[in-house]
């Protein structure tokens, strides 16, 4: 059983409302004190390298200036982050995007808007290696 409070997390998201929800879920409801949030993907690798290596990176897919796929590629090119779990967060309900997320190397995907009660379970399942591609309810 993973101790979710023991991990370091990074969330990259340019939508303020989504950031607020994540703070509420991870910070308050899950009691995680090790969540860092970037409010866009500019200078991403430079900022990432300034942090302790995160166990989990949660990436919004549709953000600027680099979208989630581009950010994923940057991370995967740096061997320091080989063991980091990278999860896509998307409001898309299109099946082709699910296929793309899987093929490009994300470890899982969770649909936005997020549910307080469902998110911790989905996160835990992804960390346990289960196939979670939770795009459409």
């Amino acid at each position: 059983m993973h101790d979710l409070q023991a991990y370091h997390y990074l969330y990259v998201e340019d939508d303020p409302l989504s950031r607020e929800v994540m703070q509420m879920i991870m910070g308050t409801a899950m009691g995680i004190e090790t969540l860092t949030i970037f409010d866009d993907s500019s200078n991403f690798m430079e900022r990432l390298q300034g942090l302790m290596v995160p166990h989990v990176i949660l990436l919004d897919i549709h953000m600027k200036p680099h979208n989630g796929f581009e950010v994923l590629d940057m991370i995967r090119q740096d061997s320091r982050y080989n063991s980091t779990t990278i999860i896509a967060l998307t409001a898309s309900v299109m099946n082709e995007e699910v296929t793309q997320l899987r093929e490009r190397g994300f470890n899982g995907a969770i649909a936005k808007p997020l549910s307080i009660q469902a998110f911790p379970t989905l996160l835990r399942q992804i960390l346990e290696g289960q196939a979670v591609w939770h795009i459409a309810d």
């Binding site: 879920i25 409801a29 899950m30 379970t121």
Partner: peptide
């Protein structure tokens, strides 16, 4: 009750 009880 603690906040964690919302999810567990």
């Amino acid at each position: 009750i603690e906040a964690l009880d919302m999810v567990a």
